[in-house]
Design a protein around this nucleic acid. Sequence first.
DNA 1: GCGGAGTTCAACCTTTCGATTGATGCCGGT
DNA 2: ACCGGCATCAATCGAAAGGTTGAACTCCGC
Lengths: 216, 216
Amino acid sequence: MTGTVIRLLLADDHPVVRAGLRAVLESEPDFEIVAEAATAERAVELAAELAVDVVLMDLQFGPGAAMNGAQATAAITARGAGAPRVLVVTTYDTDADTLPALEAGATGYLLKDAPPEELARAVRSAAAGRPALAPTVADRLLERMRTPAAALSARETEVLGLVADGLTNQAIGGRLHLSLATVKSHLVHIYTKLGVESRTAAVREARARGLIRRGG
Amino acid sequence: MTGTVIRLLLADDHPVVRAGLRAVLESEPDFEIVAEAATAERAVELAAELAVDVVLMDLQFGPGAAMNGAQATAAITARGAGAPRVLVVTTYDTDADTLPALEAGATGYLLKDAPPEELARAVRSAAAGRPALAPTVADRLLERMRTPAAALSARETEVLGLVADGLTNQAIGGRLHLSLATVKSHLVHIYTKLGVESRTAAVREARARGLIRRGG
DNA sequence: GCGGAGTTCAACCTTTCGATTGATGCCGGT
DNA sequence: ACCGGCATCAATCGAAAGGTTGAACTCCGC
């Protein structure tokens, strides 16, 4: 956005990854790495204080991090015009990660196994405001458009999360202040939407589609 | 092992991580990075061809990798005396990963979020043949010694794996050529060992303890 | 050789789950 | 104002899962 030099901020809790991104990116003459952040909070601070064009953001901060990459992305892009573009660079690409990140305002989404050239290309795209998506992510977005999108409602996701935690229907009802009948009703809808016919299969399917978090 | 300079091989499928490890380690005057491998197979080849003291090995190669880091570790250390030491440097630290890696002959086990100094220290330890474990890994090993080790038998693990895939007891019996009674019997033992009382809770608990694979 | 752990199976019973049907109230879009 | 989706609950019924008891057989270590 500055015209000649693209100013970068690296946000990742792994020192090794930061060093790797720095090594890969600082060989590009039109890139300038202005700062590194080891936490999501620090990334938000630095993005506000410094003149930054693109933030390379990891999604997974932790364990024990107060803020994750998606939240940081939302905080940074909330400023609207003039805010840095956020390019998410993460290890995994589940639906449960990518969609919230893109909704939070990320301009691009790459995987860490991307080759250096692709990284540099994505940074330039992001700086120009053009989306930069990894092929697998783009594929999934297109497929999401095609398919009727068997997305679960918020309540259904909540119920399914407790099912994944090993709770019985009755225990789920107690936890969410619902009757047993309601829990079963939600489950029937979940099964229909996911095309399965048992709670364990539903958990597996939801995990595969990235509808529920891995670490419970 | 060469006395003055420690010769390193970097084995990781992420170019960014390789660059990061190189950037962090090559600033140490007594380290020399002799090669990089993007696949586990290539790492085994290079470890055999070149004079290498320590291999920095990632456990997760993939998706679609024919060999994982634990297998490569076993292949490298199988040579016995004169074989390079393998220092596992990975992202996550579940029991299902660490224990096989250590059994395969890894001299050390670090997480990628380790600070550079700790990495360098671990490399020197590994080169000298001294174990180099991340604190969390060491803790878990000690706890493993203390606790009576509620390890599941091979058959039980097999059954639980199919439960995690969402199969019913009858389907599991069909798959493993067992009667329904036998499957239930195994499950009762599993529940007792894991201290749970339902199949979903058992799956969750086993996942948390790293007893079964994530991507099922 | 004996005991223990693992694996295999059977019969019985209780609880839970899943499927079905049906109903109510709320909210948002047409 | 009406319709559809969401959330809430009820009742019923068959299937599946879980608990209990009991019993073989094999393999391994003491």
